[in-house]
Design a binder for these strands. Sequence first.
DNA 1: AGGAAAATCTAACACTGCCAAATTTCCTGT
DNA 2: ACAGGAAATTTGGCAGTGTTAGATTTTCCT
Lengths: 284, 284
Amino acid sequence: MLDFPHSTHNLCPRQGGRRTVANMPAEENAPAPPTLRQRRRAAAIQEILDAAERHITDNGPAALSLRAIARSLGMTVQALYYYFPSRETLLTVLVAKGYDDLAAAVQNAVDTAAEDSALPRLVVAAEGYRRWAIANPERFKLLYGTPLRDYAAPAGGPTTEAVRRLSGVFQRELFDGFTAAQLAAVDTLVLSPGLRAHLEQLPQSGLGDLPPPATSLLLSAWGNLHGLVVLEVFGHTSFLGDHQDEIFRTAMLNMLGDIHRRIPVQVTKPRAADRMKPRLPPPP
Amino acid sequence: MLDFPHSTHNLCPRQGGRRTVANMPAEENAPAPPTLRQRRRAAAIQEILDAAERHITDNGPAALSLRAIARSLGMTVQALYYYFPSRETLLTVLVAKGYDDLAAAVQNAVDTAAEDSALPRLVVAAEGYRRWAIANPERFKLLYGTPLRDYAAPAGGPTTEAVRRLSGVFQRELFDGFTAAQLAAVDTLVLSPGLRAHLEQLPQSGLGDLPPPATSLLLSAWGNLHGLVVLEVFGHTSFLGDHQDEIFRTAMLNMLGDIHRRIPVQVTKPRAADRMKPRLPPPP
DNA sequence: AGGAAAATCTAACACTGCCAAATTTCCTGT
DNA sequence: ACAGGAAATTTGGCAGTGTTAGATTTTCCT
């Protein structure tokens, strides 16, 4: 992607379309360094994206104007149209990058967590999620705020990939250390056969390799986590003042305890489960 | 509110400012019918609001343009400015009305629920919330999507009132039937003294009359409910297809079970608690 | 050097929210 | 009954937006 050759306007009438394939990720067979032109083009695109991101960070997604970007780059608006056929497209790329950064932040939070941290790693991940959202509120709004006009998460696009990574982290930290048998026997309400089947063979989204009841729990946990963050970032819980950290952490710890309570203790209770014990009285 | 006399532009230089008090809600001492002019003004405002709401329902909040409203009403743009000093203001009123309608929908769902419904009333309320959001996605986005520029929920405004009503319903259905002693002793992680104090005397928002730990649970529940709805309405869980109903209901039932599990059985276990039993094994 | 593609520019259209002043409509006090 | 005046609406315009069309320059390859 990222190569909308000459936007929509048909300048350069006889287009070649020859080397309009991916230029950024160097996906071709030959690892040969991309043409100088391609490098320049990539650099220009990067410059535009950086400027756009800066503008979003400063003034929010709604205030992002192509003219402002062009101005801060010392070029004309129409130059931008050579790289991005529309504002929508530019935003779409920024959304994808946002998901990527968010996923990286969460992953990083988990990775750099103190090995002897008293905090369960799922909570560490959740707090990484929240921290990124609070540190980049405007970008977070870009991701999870009112969807852009006509923008439907492109299936199979880079967005999906990052979302998969994100859910992968939470899935891992939430369920790692439990056997498939345990997860298959989580204590949940019965799911309809149709739903079970649907959850079992979720084509993508990285949720496929989990027993349906566990997937259901994961989704609920995602909702809980995301709901609290969304409410906070969008200012709906401002009445909590600066206690939001504690409210959030408490909620996450409680949630983790509740979920783990639903996973039956069975053959073995591996180390991860020990490390994750949420400081709640274990089931008798 | 709703009386921005003649917008910001200073036409009619020598303004009286005499009868610019509330005209819509007839809050005055005399129940005398408002002036004919006032009635006309109120009707015009209502007409504008209706048209605006229609436009939002059809094309989303972002696409709402004053000119479009004026066009569909057969007037000029500037006529609108006589009733609303800015687009922001108009949207703010619509937001308030949105909260009101949402709260009413939830309340109505609870009220009209079959008395012998197998579904706990909290879940009925939650499904009312979700149903409204799905039935009015654009208006829901207006409420909980990216906040409007410079729009901070006006403290004490009508918005807050509706939010209080909303949280009141959930608080009631979640905790009704339990004694204050029970709620004060819910099995949660310890809250810091500062947070306890803050939660105890929440000035408004209708959360004040609940023991801090219960408030914390209520907030988490709100997050869970809202998070799932937000993810669905904004299209982030489209991979679930038409199983979202079941996912949502299951999550809410599980959540209710988890929360009630944290409320100790004590002196009495009143009827409401029985009616609400979430079909989960009761604590041993 | 020539030629073609890549990249940029100028000019303009239709749209937006908003401001200022002139103008009509209609109520009200004498 | 009529004049004064406030309420309500209109015309005209400004600055900003995304987008398109066509002409023009820059850059690279042969």
